[in-house]
Amino acid sequence: MDLTALKKQESKRKISKGYMWAFFCAVFWGIWYLPGSVVWVLNPFDEMSAAIAKTSGDGVSLVVTAVLITAFNALTVMLALMLWNGTLGKFGELKRTLKEFHPCSKWFFLASIFGGPMAILGSFIAMGFIGGAFAAVAGLLYPVIGSILAYYWYGEKISKRAAMGIAVIVLGGISIYGGGLLTELSSGNVPWIGYLGGLMAAVGWGTEGAIAGKGLDIAEPDAGLTLRFLGENIIWWIIIVPILALVGFPMYSFALQAFEPLTLLVLIFAGITFGFCYVTWYKSFPLIGVGRGQGIGNLYGFLAVIFIFLFNGTVPSWTILVGGLLCITGSFIMFTEDTSALETLRGE
């Protein structure tokens, strides 16, 4: 075969593989909202929120319960990633990357602060207070935060096209938040903490992306992601859960009750889907470019709504659907801007 034919074949293989990874990411990410919402009504988390609500009120009880759920989510993601690294034979690389704390792994730990206690906790809070579809769609606002941060931090320019994408996403955000808010304001019952959770998801993921990119560029993503979740587990299990227990919340007694077959199964399901959505996300970038990878990954918002409809039969309000559609359109406008990435991948 000659050089041009081979080049074409190679680029075709890369691109189709890249799209496949990105689409898997969207599927895993979208599915995650199923176990994420279901776990709230399972033992011990339902009993936990009821028990704490009696003494500390509904708001506090849901947030504290969300902390325990997020901590378990981090634990099962870690298990899934360790299994993944083991299968790929990457424990050696994991150790080598961990040892480079100063130049490299510090970024992963910093990223885990924004990813964990902010984005993932916020998502669980939004799922608990408002619902899975809202949580999924609210998270779609993260590219806005990411690009504004990159503008101020690395002085990355925001092009006209990116600004247009951001504007469309913001319109979507107004629809997602505004629609529900209007009806709730008139009824006088606004789940503020849930909305705050949705905002935390967007700000957390946007910030995490900007920080993690600094370390992940020069590490192997499989190893880097595992370290990012190692950081999150430390935050939950060594810092936040013990502090909440010291303050008097029954963290440990309920944590021990989580080892029930059904609860454990749902948590493991959440860990696998969430862990692999991160892995596949990063696998797609070198093949189709970060822009396309993120654009397609963002279809997760759409898929989450479909999965939640199929499994739980709930249809979100039309303002969430319109908002989600606007966010996905906006992210495509933003992310398909840079065509040079695909050309360099073609090696022409």
Binding site: M1, D2, L3, L6, K7, L88, G89, D217, I218, E220, P221, F285, P286, L287, G289, A341, T344, L345, G347
Partner: peptide, 25 residues
């Protein structure tokens, strides 16, 4: 092992740290 090292090189190139300047069969 060979393929995974090669993928690391591809990742570095797609991250803009290396440049692919020539190809041959």
């Amino acid at each position: 092992g060979r393929d995974s090292i090669n993928f690391d090189i591809i990742e570095l190139a797609s991250g803009g740290m290396l440049k692919d300047i020539e190809q041959k069969v």
